[in-house]
Amino acid sequence: MHSNLHIYPSTIEKPIQKLKGVKTAVVVPIPDDHNYHNICACVVREPGSKVTEADVIQAVTDMYTAGDVKNIVAPQHVLFIEDIKVNERGKMNTNSLIDYAVKMIKGSK
Rank of each mutant, 00 (worst) to 15 (best):
I12V: 14
T11C: 09
G67T: 11
M1P: 09
H77V: 04
P75D: 02
R89I: 09
T65H: 15
D99V: 07
Y64F: 06
V43R: 04
N4W: 09
Y100L: 14
K70W: 07
S3V: 05
N38F: 03
K23F: 01
K50C: 07
Q58K: 15
C40H: 11
D55G: 12
T94S: 07
H77T: 06
Q76I: 00
H6K: 15
P47D: 12
I16M: 08
N95F: 09
S49L: 01
H37G: 06
A101G: 07
V51F: 02
I84P: 05
E88L: 04
T94K: 15
N38I: 04
S10F: 00
P9E: 06
E13P: 02
Y36L: 11
E13Y: 01
I84D: 03
H37E: 15
V26P: 00
V27A: 02
S108V: 14
H34C: 04
P47K: 13
V69N: 02
N87M: 07
N35L: 15
A54I: 00
S3I: 03
T94N: 05
A41S: 11
M63F: 03
I16G: 02
M92N: 12
H34E: 12
M1V: 04
D55L: 06
I57D: 05
H6F: 10
M104C: 12
I12R: 02
K85W: 00
T94M: 08
M63L: 13
A59Q: 03
V102R: 13
H77N: 13
R89E: 12
P15A: 07
V28I: 12
K106E: 11
H77P: 07
A41D: 04
D83G: 02
N38A: 09
F80D: 05
I30C: 06
V44K: 11
H34A: 09
L97H: 06
A74M: 05
V28H: 00
G21A: 11
A25T: 03
D68F: 09
H77G: 03
I57C: 11
C40Y: 09
M92T: 12
K103Y: 06
D32Y: 10
M1E: 06
D83F: 08
I57P: 05
D99Y: 05
S49R: 03
D33Q: 13
A66W: 01
S108R: 14
M104K: 15
K20C: 03
M63P: 01
I7Q: 02
V56R: 05
I81F: 01
V28Q: 01
D99F: 04
